[in-house]
Simulated assay, not measured.
Amino acid sequence: MVTICEMSDSDDDDVPQLSSHALAALQEFYAEQKQHPDPNGDDKYNIGVIEENWQLSQFWYSQETALRLAKEAIAAAGEGGRVACVSTPSVYQKLRELRSKLLSVCLFEFDRRFAVYGEDFIFYDYSRPLDFPGDVAAHSFDVVIADPPYLSVDCLRKTAETVRYLTRGKILLCTGAVLKEEAARLLGVTPCRFLPTHCRVLANEFCCYANYDSGLDHDV
Rank of each mutant, 00 (worst) to 15 (best):
R99T: 13
R68E: 11
L69C: 10
S87F: 10
C85M: 09
Y126K: 02
R113G: 13
D120T: 03
Q63M: 12
Q63L: 12
W54A: 14
W54Q: 13
R82D: 06
L56I: 08
G78L: 04
T88P: 09
Y124E: 04
R112S: 12
V116Y: 02
A70E: 05
L67S: 12
R112E: 12
G78D: 02
D125M: 07
L107K: 00
R113D: 13
I122Y: 01
Q63I: 14
N53Y: 11
L98T: 09
T88D: 13
S90M: 13
R99P: 10
E64H: 12
A75T: 06
K94V: 12
L56Y: 10
F114R: 00
A66T: 06
D120P: 03
Q93H: 15
P129R: 03
A73M: 02
E72C: 07
S127G: 07
A75G: 03
R82S: 13
L102V: 12
S57F: 03
G80F: 04
E51R: 14
V116N: 02
L69K: 00
Q93K: 14
L67C: 09
D120H: 09
D125C: 12
K94A: 15
R128T: 15
V91R: 06
G118Y: 03
W54I: 14
A70F: 07
D111E: 07
E109M: 01
L102M: 09
R112G: 12
F121P: 00
Y126E: 07
L95Q: 04
T65S: 10
R96N: 15
S100A: 14
Y124G: 05
Y117L: 11
Y124H: 04
T65D: 02
L67F: 08
E51S: 15
Y124F: 10
A115R: 06
L69A: 06
F121Y: 07
E64I: 11
S100W: 03
L107G: 05
F59D: 03
W60P: 01
S127A: 13
T88A: 15
E109D: 09
D111A: 07
W60T: 06
D111G: 06
L95I: 11
D120N: 07
C85G: 11
W60S: 01
L107Q: 01
P129H: 04
F114A: 05
A77E: 01
Y117M: 10
E97Y: 09
K101Y: 08
Y92F: 15
F108E: 00
E97K: 10
W60N: 02
T88C: 15
L102W: 10
A84I: 06
E51L: 14
Y126M: 09
Y117S: 09
L56H: 07
A70S: 10
Y61S: 08
I122K: 00
Q58T: 07
Q93F: 15
F108N: 01
D111W: 03
L102A: 14
F121Q: 01
E97V: 12
T88N: 11
Q63P: 04
V91C: 13
G78N: 03
S57G: 04
G78Q: 02
K101I: 10
F108H: 00
F108D: 00
S104F: 08
Y117D: 09
R113K: 11
A70T: 05
W54V: 14
E64M: 10
I74L: 14
S87H: 08
